[in-house]
Simulated scan of single mutants.
Amino acid sequence: MDLIINVGLPLSLAIIMLSLGIGLEVADFRRVLSRGYPFAIGAISQIILLPVAAFATVKLFALPPEIAVGFMLLSFCPGGVTSNILSKLAKGDVALSVSLTAVISLLSMLTVPILAAWSIAHFMGEDAPEVSIAGLAIALFLITTLPVAIGVSIRHFATGFANRVDATLSKLATVLFVLIVIAALAGNWQLFVDNLSIMGAGLITLNIALLLIGLGLARAANLSWDESKTVSIETGIQNSTLGITLAALITGTESGFSPLALPSAVYGITMYAVALPLILWFRRR
Rank of each mutant, 00 (worst) to 15 (best):
S108F: 11
I198Y: 08
I85L: 15
S153K: 02
I133Y: 01
A162G: 05
A95F: 04
V178K: 03
D166L: 13
V103L: 11
T145L: 02
L172C: 14
H122S: 14
R155H: 06
I150T: 08
V103I: 15
A128F: 06
A116Q: 07
I180T: 13
I133K: 04
V165Q: 03
T144Q: 13
T174R: 14
V148N: 09
A116D: 09
S132R: 08
S153H: 02
L169S: 11
R155N: 11
A116K: 02
I85H: 07
S170D: 15
V112A: 02
T145F: 10
S87A: 15
L146Q: 05
A90L: 02
A173D: 03
T111M: 12
V175I: 15
A184C: 13
L86P: 09
G187Y: 10
I198C: 07
E126V: 07
V112G: 01
N188H: 08
E130H: 06
A173N: 03
F141C: 04
M124G: 06
R155I: 00
N195R: 05
W189A: 10
E126K: 11
S87E: 00
S170F: 08
P129N: 02
I114S: 07
P113H: 01
L136G: 04
A158M: 11
A173R: 01
T159D: 09
N84H: 08
M124Y: 05
G187D: 12
H122D: 14
L106E: 09
V103M: 04
G187S: 12
V131L: 00
L196I: 13
R164E: 00
F177K: 00
Q190Y: 09
A117K: 10
L142S: 06
I133A: 05
G160Y: 06
F192N: 01
S105F: 01
S153Y: 05
L100W: 05
I143D: 01
K171D: 08
V94D: 00
R164H: 09
I180V: 15
V94F: 01
G125Y: 02
L89N: 09
L107G: 11
A173L: 04
F157E: 06
S105M: 05
A158Y: 05
H122P: 05
L196T: 03
D127P: 11
L140T: 07
T145A: 14
L172K: 09
K171Q: 11
G187K: 11
V112L: 09
F192H: 04
M109L: 13
S83I: 06
A102S: 13
L142K: 09
E130A: 10
I180M: 15
S170P: 09
I104K: 02
E130L: 07
L179D: 03
L107V: 15
Q190K: 13
A116Y: 04
Q190T: 14
L86G: 12
N195F: 02
H122W: 13
I138V: 09
L96G: 09
K171H: 12
F141I: 02
V103P: 02
N84M: 09
I120L: 10
F141G: 13
L110Y: 10
T111E: 15
S108H: 09
I182R: 10
